[in-house]
Simulated scan of single mutants.
Amino acid sequence: MTERGGARVPRGEARDRIVAAATELFGRQGYEATTTRQIVEAAQVTKGAMYHWFSSKEELLTSIYRELLAEQTARLEAIAGGAGPADVRLHDAVTDLFAHMDEHAEPLTVWARSMHLVAGEHAAAVRAERRRYQHLFQDLVEEGQKTGVFRGDVLATVVTNTFLSGIVQIYRWFRPEGPLTRRELGEQMVALFLDGVRTVPTAEPA
């Protein structure tokens, strides 16, 4: 238990408060401009509670993203390991990815804007977990190429990195007040991506 203003806060709840406060502050005023003191005050917990869960502001930022990335990876693993043709599973995977991004838009946007500030062991941990997601995605693309549902003239590594790199950059140009919702944007990007990787039927002779 931790105390704040005379009230006792369960440790698990304190962690949730810290994450929620940090996400809101990072999103509103930026990671660099946000201080640990501001996070503690917004979360209404003690500084000790903050450092019980996170050794630094950098660890807090990476922890928020790594938890979401772990969710994305588990969901992709379940879809990729399911039944059905590779193109159907890849469609389900990228559609689910956009759904997850829509559900957690604020913390994922915070990470995309701030990830260049993370270095050392925290950056290495994130890279390792992202490689796992990329390998699962690439394996699914390669499976589709082997079964003939995806074009084989473009390497699976190129397909994978082009798509996932484009996803990371969405925060730079997407505007919630624009003509599309995140879900609608996802539907269009999924259609564009899958049309680009599917095998083009050979034209019948005249």
Rank of each mutant, 00 (worst) to 15 (best):
G81M: 13
G82F: 15
G82V: 09
P85W: 14
P85V: 04
P85F: 09
V88F: 12
R89L: 08
A93M: 14
V94G: 01
V94R: 05
T95L: 13
D96E: 15
D96L: 02
D96R: 07
L97S: 04
A99I: 05
M101Q: 15
M101R: 12
D102A: 08
D102E: 11
E103R: 14
E106Q: 11
P107C: 12
T109R: 04
V110T: 11
V110C: 09
W111F: 12
A112C: 10
R113S: 06
S114K: 07
M115H: 14
M115N: 13
M115R: 13
H116K: 14
A119W: 13
G120A: 10
G120H: 11
G120K: 15
E121D: 15
H122R: 15
A123E: 12
V126T: 06
V126P: 07
V126G: 02
R127G: 00
A128Q: 15
A128H: 13
R131I: 00
R132E: 15
L136R: 02
Q138A: 06
Q138H: 07
D139Y: 02
D139H: 14
L140V: 01
V141H: 03
G144D: 05
Q145E: 14
K146G: 10
T147S: 15
G148W: 08
V149M: 12
R151K: 14
D153C: 03
V154G: 01
V154A: 03
L155F: 07
L155S: 12
V158N: 00
T160F: 07
N161V: 00
N161S: 06
F163E: 00
F163N: 07
F163P: 00
F163Y: 06
L164K: 05
S165R: 04
G166H: 09
G166L: 11
Q169H: 10
Q169V: 09
Q169C: 08
W173Q: 05
W173I: 01
P176F: 07
E177M: 12
